[in-house]
Amino acid sequence: MAAVLATNIVKQFDEVLAVNGITLAVPDGEFIVLLGPSGCGKTTLLRIICGLERQTAGDLIIGGSIVNDIPPRARGVAMMFQSYGLYPHYTVRNNIAFPLRTQRASRAEIDRKVKWAAQLLGLSHLLDRRPRQLSGGERQRVALARALVREPTALLLDEPLSNLDAKLRASARQEIKQFQQRVGVTTIYVTHDQVEAMGMGDRIAVIEHGKVRQVGTPAEIYNEPADRFVATFVGSPPMNLLARNDAYLGFRPENFLPREMVDDGNGGVTEFSFRVDRCEYLGSERIAYGVIEGFESPQLITAKLPPAHVAEESIRPGEWHRFAVRNSALRYFDHDGKRVNRS
């Protein structure tokens, strides 16, 4: 059974169409990531799911019942906000207890659940502190504890890591994911960061201009993008696109290598003449930017080279080189940007 089911959700703000007919089913216990650029409608969708916004059209079903006109407090969802939304005048204990108090839980039950949530997230020693006395990572865990303490049907996370520094972000990613697997709560996670999406999601829904472009596992999204937007939005550097007649040919930078490094396999290879304009050395990889002879391309073509295998002297800026892509790694898109099997 789907824990959360959105059917044809539309949200219109005055002139702006923020969500344009999104249908999405999130099975029980799944960790789904809504990924998209800023302003694509992903946060609006999340706010509709938790009831802070009312959709203009479409139905929302949570835990088997239609909740279109049910206020947030009765929907059984919990949300964690980008800035955490902790109550600054309450201690950690009272922050976590707040959702239970609104449900008029007994004092003993509140005590028990606050202890449970605090222990789960390693907050037991911080219960009497105020939010301003906590570090960013601790605040985030308090927000998570507050969201979980009333055992929601679905947990909604709105860019929860964007306030953490890069190092903390990596460990927090790990923590949230492990924690979600342990508790098994259905989780909808909004982010614009593809690393978070790829690393954490069981499935990813890529959203652009209020529409879902593709839903799939991280591997499907990366390897089998449904259209040009997904192909160029996911992956860093993005997929290379070559215009050919009225269609596009795409391949990932890591599949675009010097000819001698590409073995023919059974599908054969496609060769290109590649003029390198600039190289970036990034430690574990080297990225070459340039143009391909005979093709037009919306952006510079990139090749991701393993430095261990490609000596620095062999790829020099300003020179033409023979590069190739295995045919099995080529993707084709029609003039509308939709993926097609073979052109």
Partner: peptide, 14 residues
């Protein structure tokens, strides 16, 4: 901050 008011709303506060 609007986030705090929203959080309270989702947490069940009328």
């Amino acid at each position: 901050p609007q986030d705090i008011i929203d959080a309270a709303t989702v947490d069940g506060a009328g």
